[in-house]
Design a protein around this nucleic acid. Structure first.
Length: 740
RNA sequence: GGGCUGGUAGCUCAGCGCCAGAGCACACGCUUGAUAAGCGUGAGGUCGGACGGUUCAAAUCCUCCCCGGCCCA
């Protein structure tokens, strides 16, 4: 679309639609050569809302499937421009409306033809004899409709996209009837110098004089306007610069091969950009704007060919490097053409380059000039850039270097509201990032991203953010408990893996599984589900199981006990892994948790992900502990029933009779089952693998220190409220005691 | 209108031919030595719609429709 006011082409985004009143005309195109004899002496009737496009007419189009009526006019209303006795061709479905609009009082249909039967008919331009002598072929086109008009579309190849393509397909010329300012060019017969906005009257006058005008009216319809001047636009074909896709350079073919060689995250991107490249037309890289990067071409006036002279190019480059691209406008052409060429022989192109062309050139100066490897490892953007940056970068790199400028492309979706709808002020569903950061903190915002499937559209809103805040709390509390339980931990306390209890080795195994997931995500760029899994690990494996089980050892064992030291060694590994793994997302939280142990002079953001020893991995152990946790549920469920029956309260008040199938009997001993189930006693007995455990109140007294209910409590005389383990711990002198 | 793409519990997501899953939220209970915390148990879905097709078997494959998204027209 072209704005005669600003004298520039406009992009789709710069067009606004308003109601506009246009002059409509019905025009006769006399048949010169008929495809069927009955058409002799008849006229084809077209209807258009743009009378000013008549000088640019070069064809008339009909729909191949429609029925067209050859109408004999028998009588006309007063003032009608129709003539009694004339024969007109009009689409049958539209005939009643056309008859009414043109004031034909009575008529009869002599013949009905299929549109395809009309092909080959040659018409005369309505202004033949007045400078419009060319033939007007009647062509068939799928875009013709019978929604309005006459069923015949007047084709001006310079003033409509369908018109242009139909014209090209049929070898029609594309006359440039209208100039930049919206006036007819000097060569245009009858109308030279007239402005297209004021052309309706002269065009109608000329048509009337020629006897071609059948009727005239007005229509109010939605019409494109410039966003800046609010003035109506016109469709105008103008010469442009293109990069051809299928020339000897084989850009399309090479681009498709480059797409095959690229990694796409997600892989659907390959499909998307692939089908675009396969179907796209030649790339129009020129724009007519007052401001922008110039297309630095001189066209030789004599031949119409672009000048290809390395010396000229070198002068242009030298000028631009020191003065910038404005040198193109501020310097005389002779500066670039050099002493051997006459500036009068050349036309300097003043078009600017499409901004997408500029975006596509980034790889050329961002990578090599900074000593970075080419091609880039990754291009990352929203999915809209399949047609934007990815696309232009691909075509330019393929054109200049034969391959894509990237090894991989990662795309993410768009951020929607909680219903998956686009955010808009009018809907009031906008969530702004800075508001999230202010209310919840930037860590939450990042956590939300990592909890979402970024390959698709993301959703955000109050409820979703609230949930993220909950997830965050669990992560933060996990770190906080680790820090408290690791207080005073030193290297002397560390226990080698081989000496650790199975439970500790199981945790280390779990770390190797998570480590593998994270390293895989780093390699593949696919982080979907990684942080939810970390959260799951913290909530289910650590908080609800490992931490809960080991609180007894951490809080109550002698500090020099192997069990407690092993647990604290594992907590140390957990702290290092979790802080570094969380650091890219929970930047502030992870840094805080790191600094709490290693001082504020250090930073988790300077750490690498820990390298975990291969021998931590133990799949057999993992399987065994999966089984143990399943059996554990045979205890927790009946405990809940005992609670409901008021038999017990806390699980440590329970003594459990656990029925184990033969293959389950060797998994753990009685003390270990009690430890894992966090009860005071477990009595394993033979049974089936579906049998729930029996729950009874544990006999004995509650140890004041560890809360286990044991018969032995009170058996050490100096510690009447303690169990044996706690009495020993206190007597060891290694634990804190209240100051007397 | 076209290309690409999605629609599974309140929420975020897994499953992608063979008994509907996880975490969170929710309910109830326990705990009070992670406490603006912790533990346990439970309820919750006709997998967008089609008394549509293929199959011994479909959330999973095919067709049509509805709703949403990005890019074009």
């Amino acid at each position: 679309m072209w704005s005669p006011v600003e004298k520039t082409a406009l992009a789709e985004a710069e067009i606004e639609y308003y109601d506009h009143t246009s002059t409509t005309i019905w025009v006769r195109f006399p048949v010169v050569t008929a495809s069927v004899p009955a058409l002799r002496g008849a006229s084809v009737v077209i209807w258009t809302t743009t009378p000013w496009t008549m000088p640019g007419n070069r064809a008339v189009a009909a729909g191949p499937e429609f029925d067209y009526a050859l109408v004999h006019v028998d009588a006309v209303a007063e003032g009608s421009l129709a003539r009694v006795g004339e024969k007109l061709l009009i689409a049958l479905p539209l005939l009643p409306q056309v008859v009414q609009d043109t004031g034909i009082a009575t008529h009869h249909v002599e013949h009905v033809f299929k549109g395809e039967a009309l092909a080959g008919t040659i018409l005369a331009h309505p202004l033949r004899g007045r400078g419009y002598e060319q033939d007007t072929p009647l062509l068939l086109a799928d875009f013709v409709t019978t929604d309005a008009g006459t069923g015949f579309v007047h084709i001006a190849p310079g003033h409509g996209e369908d018109d242009f393509h139909l014209g090209r397909a049929n070898g029609l010329e594309v006359p440039e009837t209208v100039g930049d300012d919206g006036t007819f060019n000097a060569w245009v017969p009858l109308f030279a110098g007239a402005h297209v906005y004021k052309a309706a009257d002269p065009v109608c006058a000329a048509l009337t004089e020629a006897g071609a005008l059948l009727a005239r009216g007005t229509i109010r319809h939605s019409y494109p306007h410039s966003w800046r001047s609010k003035k109506p636009l016109i469709f105008r074909a103008t010469p442009q610069w293109f990069i051809r896709m299928d020339g000897p350079e084989h850009i399309r073919q090479k681009a498709l091969a480059a797409i095959d060689a690229t990694v796409f995250v997600p892989d659907q991107g390959r499909n998307r950009i692939g089908s675009m490249v396969a179907a796209r037309p030649d790339w129009c890289i020129s724009r007519q704007r007052a401001w922008g990067v110039p297309i630095t071409i001189f066209v030789e006036k004599r031949t119409g060919q672009p000048l290809r002279d390395p010396a000229v190019v070198a002068r242009i480059v030298a000028a631009f490097e020191t003065e910038g691209a404005d040198a193109w406008y501020s310097s005389p052409a002779s500066r670039f053409l050099g002493p051997d060429r006459n500036p009068d022989d050349y036309e300097q192109v003043m078009d600017i380059v499409d901004v997408w062309f500029e975006s596509g050139s980034t790889h050329a100066f961002v990578l090599e000039k900074r000593g970075l490897p080419w091609p880039a490892d990754l291009y990352l953007e929203g999915s809209d850039q399949h047609r934007g940056w990815f696309h232009s970068s691909l075509l330019e790199a393929v054109g200049t270097r034969g391959v894509a400028p990237f090894k991989a492309i990662l795309t993410h979706g768009f951020v929607m509201d909680e219903q998956g709808r686009k955010m808009s002020k009018s809907l009031g569903n906008v969530t702004a990032p800075d508001e999230v950061a202010n209310k919840y903190g930037a860590d939450i915002l990042r956590l939300w991203v990592m909890s979402s499937d970024t390959t698709e559209d993301l959703r955000i809103g109050p409820e979703i953010l609230k949930q993220q805040a909950e997830l965050y709390r669990r992560l933060r509390n996990t770190l906080r408990w680790l820090l408290g339980s690791l207080d005073g931990f030193t290297e002397d306390e560390r226990v080698p893996v081989a000496e650790m209890p199975e439970l500790e080795r199981w945790v280390l195994h779990r770390l190797t599984e998570l480590d593998a997931k994270i390293r895989s995500a780093v390699e593949s760029y696919d982080w979907t589900g990684v942080y939810p899994e970390l959260h799951n690990f913290c909530a289910v494996d650590l908080s609800a199981f490992y931490f809960d089980v080991r609180k007894d050892a951490i809080y109550c064992d002698r500090p020099d006990s192997l069990r407690r030291r092993a647990a604290r060694t594992v907590l140390d590994h957990l702290h290092r892994c979790l802080t570094t793994w969380l650091a890219p997302v929970l930047c502030f939280t992870a840094e805080e948790a790191w600094g709490a142990r290693f001082g504020d002079d250090s930073s988790v953001h300077l750490e690498l992900f820990p390298d975990l020893p291969h021998d931590w991995r133990d799949d057999a152990l993992a399987a065994k502990w999966e089984t143990i946790r399943a059996i554990r549920r045979r205890i927790t469920v009946p405990i809940e029933e005992a609670r409901a029956a008021k038999t017990i309260g806390a699980s440590l008040q329970a003594a459990v009779t656990l029925k184990l199938a033969p293959d389950e009997a060797e998994l753990l001993n009685a003390a270990e089952w009690a430890e894992v189930a966090i009860v005071s006693a477990v009595h394993p007995v033979a049974g089936g693998s579906d049998d729930p455990a029996a729950i009874a109140p544990a006999p004995g007294e509650k140890c004041a220190r560890c809360w286990r209910v044991l018969p032995e409590v009170g058996s050490v005389a100096v510690h009447p409220t303690l169990c044996l383990r706690c009495a020993d711990a206190v007597d060891s002198g290694l634990v804190c005691r209240a100051v007397a």
